[in-house]
């Protein structure tokens, strides 16, 4: 129950990891507590800084939508995603076609190789 998990190349011991997490957590909290002591909850210190502008009332106006996440990654891989969009075209006859093609290739490999 408490044994290490041997992978053949090393091991995994969750309890060593948890001890490490506890030590790291302790030092993190210690660093945090050694910061400024003049914070007061419910004062101007709690206000959101929005580049000097008024903070919109609706949270939706200052949220980053899911569509905007990893914009650069998606932009870089646009040709790939254009191709994948054609592959995932939603047409069931195409899906069946891919399946038949797959069967043909696999059967050829298994029978002749």
């Amino acid at each position: 129950m408490w044994e290490k998990i041997l992978t053949g190349f090393g091991y995994w011991d969750i309890y060593s990891w948890l001890i490490f997490l506890a030590i790291a957590g302790f030092f993190t909290l210690w660093l945090r507590n050694s910061g400024r002591q003049d914070y007061k909850e419910g004062t101007y210190q709690d206000e959101i800084y929005f580049s000097g502008n008024d903070v919109p009332e609706d949270g939706a106006d200052i949220s980053v939508p899911a569509d905007s996440a990893y914009w650069g990654f998606i932009k870089f891989f646009t040709p790939y995603y254009d191709f994948m969009a054609k592959f995932h075209n939603g047409l069931v006859q195409d899906y069946v076609g891919y399946f038949i093609l797959f069967i043909a290739v696999l059967t050829t490999l298994i029978v002749f190789v």
């Binding site: 949270g59 939508p65 996440a69």
Partner: peptide
């Protein structure tokens, strides 16, 4: 981040 965090939507 998008579902749980951030300010609440009206």
């Amino acid at each position: 981040q998008t579902a749980f965090l951030g300010p609440e939507h009206k």
